[in-house]
Nucleic acid binder design. Structure first.
Length: 381
DNA sequence: AACTCGGGGCG
DNA sequence: CGCCCAGAGTT
């Protein structure tokens, strides 16, 4: 049964070169590691923040967000005391906003339960909101030197190839498969560097489509490489294709002000601000949907004065085609049904609020249109 | 175990 | 376009 005749431990092949695997990997990492702002600190809070930002997010995307965020909130206490709007504004554009809301919740837990200090034991740290197996292992190993194997998408891919494991890396059950393998390959003599080296290897050498095996420091210990099967791994589950939804949005103007609404605190884009709108129903025009949604969400009867643009945007599980209309209030007083807050703001103030990406796709055009509008008005006088 | 949750980079 | 990304919470 044994895979390539190797001895097994818990079903995982043990090869005699584990020490060589560790030393080759570390040597490569220490010579090739990329510069990252969170690699210049030993502050557990900063390292924690970086790991949260790096969930499902590439390093280069996270870097500027990290620098702004850790400057604004250098400690758990500072984050705990901030307003959620300020936190979301700094997260704006990074996506997966529950990460920001959970991180702030966790910061408050740290202040209340741990005297403001990030706990250095795994059980306490992992009890915090938003801290799962990966972040727990990453922070414990990198910040505190504790032995914990971090398993992310990179590590699963590397281990899938190294051991030729057929478990699909994107399956729900994949973590249960790859965590014990990562434990077996873990290097307790260099917890933080080993974890980062595995991830760095996955990101820069053992890449999904175009692995650069010629540069790989552990190819002699890689089963797939030795069997010329690297590109057959990892196995991946096929994804369902995402549906498209049609959305209508109203930019409601009153004088020189616009109405913006704050989304409920959980779910999609929770806590972000947006222009009111919603789904276009079957056999309904986008314009009619805009009028209906404005009535339903903020209780205003509006009249569409023109169409601004159409915007396309992709989320994880669906795509949207969004028609944006300029509207004027005919009658009604604002009463909220759905949004948890709303506010009339001048165009220049929009930048103070966190908006979803789909809104940002038309805001520059909106500002341009409003500017043109005000120029025409002043010329008339 | 399946679903939800963003946005960008890249072939 | 589809895939992937230093995943975690909810159902």
């Amino acid at each position: 049964m044994a895979t390539s005749g190797l001895p097994l431990s818990n079903g995982i092949p043990i090869f005699s070169g584990m020490k060589r695997f560790h030393s080759q990997l570390l040597k490569w990492y220490r010579a090739n590691r990329r510069e990252m702002p969170w690699r210049n600190t030993s502050d557990p809070f900063a390292i924690w923040v970086s790991e949260v930002m790096l969930q499902q997010t590439q390093v280069n995307t996270a870097i500027p967000y990290f620098n702004r965020f850790i400057t604004a909130f250098p400690t758990p206490a500072a984050l705990a005391e901030a307003s959620e709007d300020d936190v979301l504004k700094l997260w704006e554009g990074l996506g997966y906003y529950a990460r920001a809301r959970n991180l702030q919740r966790a910061a408050r837990q740290v202040v209340q339960l741990f005297n403001g200090q990030v706990p250095s034991d795994k059980a306490s740290f992992q009890s915090l909101t938003g801290v799962g197996p990966y972040i727990s292992a990453a922070v414990m190993s990198i910040a505190f030197g504790r032995p914990a194997a971090a398993v992310d998408g990179n590590v699963k891919r590397v281990l899938s190839r190294v051991t030729m494991n057929d478990a699909p890396v994107n399956a729900a059950s994949s973590h249960a498969v790859y965590q014990p393998i990562a434990d077996r390959y873990f290097n307790p003599n260099a917890p933080g560097d080993h974890n980062q080296a595995m991830m760095e290897l996955g990101a820069n050498v053992c890449q999904p489509k175009t692995p650069r095996c010629s540069q790989c420091p552990v190819r002699q210990m890689c089963t797939a490489y030795k069997q010329d099967a690297v590109v057959q791994y990892p196995k991946v589950e096929q994804r369902k294709k995402v549906p498209t939804r049609h959305i209508a949005v109203g930019v409601i103007q009153k004088g020189n002000q616009l109405l913006i609404c704050k989304r409920k605190p959980d779910g999609l884009l929770g806590g972000l601000w947006e222009f009111p709108g919603g789904g276009v129903e079957k056999d309904e025009s986008a314009e009619a949907a805009c009028v209906r949604e404005c009535k339903e969400e903020v209780n205003l009867t509006v009249r569409v004065t023109g169409k601004l643009t159409t915007v396309r945007h992709a989320y994880s599980h669906f795509k949207i085609v969004m028609d944006v209309f300029m509207c004027a209030v005919q009658n009604g007083r604002v009463r909220l049904r759905g949004p948890v807050a709303c506010q009339w703001v001048r165009p220049a103030e929009l930048g103070r609020f966190a908006f979803p990406g789909a809104n940002h796709k038309f805001i520059p055009l909106l500002l341009q249109a409003l500017e043109l509008q005000s120029q025409l008005k002043s010329e008339k006088q």
